[in-house]
């Protein structure tokens, strides 16, 4: 389980997270919903050890993550699929897929990944950046499934994608969830997370304003829509 308590984080002088509290239990899909600038990406980056100045508590399976470098966090089995997808332009699709080192046993085989994402197989010798947005997103997810990481941080995987691609990603996430992965899913798309997340956290101005179980989500949808500015 990932346990975040009273977490503060800064970008230079700008104070982004203000006493954030949330828990992500093993094997669950947890969504983090909020507007642009609410602190969603910063939360992901803080977990990954990518923020310079942080304060508070952040532990994963009993280990204090705030003391670790990003590569050491990754070695604990946590993997990030960032908002910009971070496909490496100098690498082919296949090289992008194979880049993250195996950090634990039990990762997906390349064959299985190609089964899940047939497009990636077809384009494996292309440059990573020649893929469409949807294909890049799938590659960014596929890339971290190979490594044996069991805790996935997915930062707005549906952003800017066509509905048919969003559906495909949704099916993929359902499949990944079935396999027992723990997922922290940052989103602005309430409809997308509704079908998949077990717990929803609502974030505003760098702190959690509400926590909803999957069953409570529907009757609080007005509150969620208001938070997201819809």
């Amino acid at each position: 389980m990932l346990d975040i308590a009273d977490l503060d984080a800064w970008y230079g002088e700008s104070h982004v997270l203000h006493g954030l509290n949330m828990q992500v239990p093993d094997g669950k899909v947890v969504s983090l919903l909020g507007r642009n600038g609410a602190g969603k990406t910063t939360t992901m980056r803080t977990i990954m050890g990518l923020m310079g100045k942080v304060r508070g508590r952040l532990s994963y399976e009993g280990t204090d993550l705030l003391k670790l470098r990003p590569d050491q966090v990754a070695r604990k089995g946590i993997a990030l699929c960032p908002e910009d997808r971070a496909i490496f332009p100098s690498l082919s699709v296949h090289e992008n897929l194979m880049l993250p080192p195996i950090i634990a046993q039990g990762g997906m085989s390349v064959e299985h990944i190609y089964e899940l994402f047939p497009n990636i197989k077809e384009r494996s010798s292309s440059r990573g950046t020649q893929l469409s947005g949807g294909e890049q997103q799938m590659l960014a997810i596929a890339r971290i499934l190979r490594t044996g990481a069991k805790f996935l941080l997915l930062d707005e995987p549906t952003e800017g994608l066509a509905p048919v691609i969003v559906q495909q990603i949704s099916r993929t996430l359902a499949e990944i969830k079935e396999m027992g992965y723990t997922i922290l899913l940052v989103e602005q798309n309430a409809h997308f997370v509704q079908g998949i997340a077990d717990i929803h956290y609502l974030i505003e101005n760098g702190h959690i304003v509400d926590r909803l179980e999957a069953g409570e989500f529907e009757k609080n949808i007005a509150k969620v829509d208001k938070l997201l500015g819809l």
């Binding site: 990754a74 990030l80 100098s90 690498l91 194979m98 880049l99 950090i103 971290i144």
Partner: peptide
């Protein structure tokens, strides 16, 4: 080679390469 791919990737985006568990 995979080693070279690591080098090229780290030249593109060192932070992300480190977030994948490579000691940059």
């Amino acid at each position: 080679t995979p080693l070279g791919a690591k080098l090229r990737a780290a030249t593109d985006n060192p932070q992300m390469v480190q977030a994948f568990g490579i000691n940059v």
